[in-house]
């Protein structure tokens, strides 16, 4: 018998996320610019590195931006992108308003996006090192892969966790096709649920198929246009980060949270 699935969020085609929008009427403070609001990490603490992979256009950069928004006042962030990186991309992330463009490093992949994140990870590791050399200790480094196909995954030598982003517009058959990204990523994000009615994608089918493919591994349905901070994904990252820190503190090699 299949083990009891971990609570996997249900499809939310209506866009109800349960996360309040940023409300300026509620009293709160913004951190002083120029003052690092974060408590220093333990010296041994290494940033949690999270890979974000998935097919072209599924919403990886949008998810990076959403997570930057979510963690802006909470974590010391760095981003490495293997995307074909234009100033528009930089502008996009800058406009997302929460990440200093210097904290984004682009890695050229020589037309082999999967090689750069899987077989030959040095340039990505260099980029992570450079971020840490420039900004000191970080809590979280997001590594966006170049848009690839369903077979691309990150090496465990590069990232601690990986998120695979597919979208409903690719068709509700995608989870059924499987591939290492869908079956083995630590988190599967099925994005653009707002488009499901328009493209005739059946979210129930996608949910059923991803459960079948992924066993216990979690899947999140998301619409970034409706949930600008990707609340469930951010929560998952927080949870993984807590595990990562605990593992670092006890010196146990970081495994899956």
């Amino acid at each position: 018998m299949r083990p009891e699935p971990t609570p996997s969020p249900r499809p939310q085609p209506t866009g109800q996320t349960g996360y309040p929008e940023h409300d300026e009427t509620v009293p709160h403070t913004h951190p002083e610019p120029g003052v690092d609001p974060h408590a220093p990490l333990a010296a041994a603490g290494r940033a949690l590195r999270v890979g974000i992979g998935g097919p072209v256009g599924s919403g990886k950069t949008a998810l990076v931006a959403a997570l930057c928004r979510a963690f802006a006042d909470e974590l010391r962030l760095g981003v490495v992108t293997n995307d074909i990186y234009t100033t528009e991309d930089a502008d996009f992330l800058r406009r997302a308003g929460v990440l200093d463009p210097d904290r984004i490093r682009a890695v050229e992949t020589g037309c082999c996006p999967h090689t750069a994140i899987r077989d030959d990870i040095g340039a990505n590791l260099d980029a992570v090192d450079e971020l840490e050399e420039t900004f000191g200790a970080l809590d979280l480094v997001l590594v966006e892969s170049g848009g690839d196909n369903l077979t691309a995954t990150f090496s465990r030598g590069l990232v601690d966790r990986q998120i695979f982003v597919v979208d409903v517009a690719g068709g509700d058959k995608v989870p059924r096709k499987g591939g290492p990204g869908v079956t083995a990523a630590d988190l599967l994000v099925i994005n653009k649920t707002d488009l499901a009615p328009l493209v005739g994608a059946d979210l129930q089918v996608m949910d059923r198929d991803s459960r079948a493919r992924r066993g216990d591994l979690p899947t999140v349905f998301l619409s970034i246009v409706q949930d600008r901070q990707a609340g469930q994904v951010a929560d998952w990252v927080r949870h993984e980060l807590a595990h990562h820190r605990a593992a670092q503190a006890t010196g146990v090699p970081a495994g899956r949270g």
Binding site: E108, G110, C112, T115, D119, D120, I121, A123
Partner: peptide, 11 residues
């Protein structure tokens, strides 16, 4: 060229 020293990214 598969020795992981980044050759794939250089032309």
């Amino acid at each position: 060229g598969r020795f992981p020293a980044g050759a794939h990214a250089h032309s």
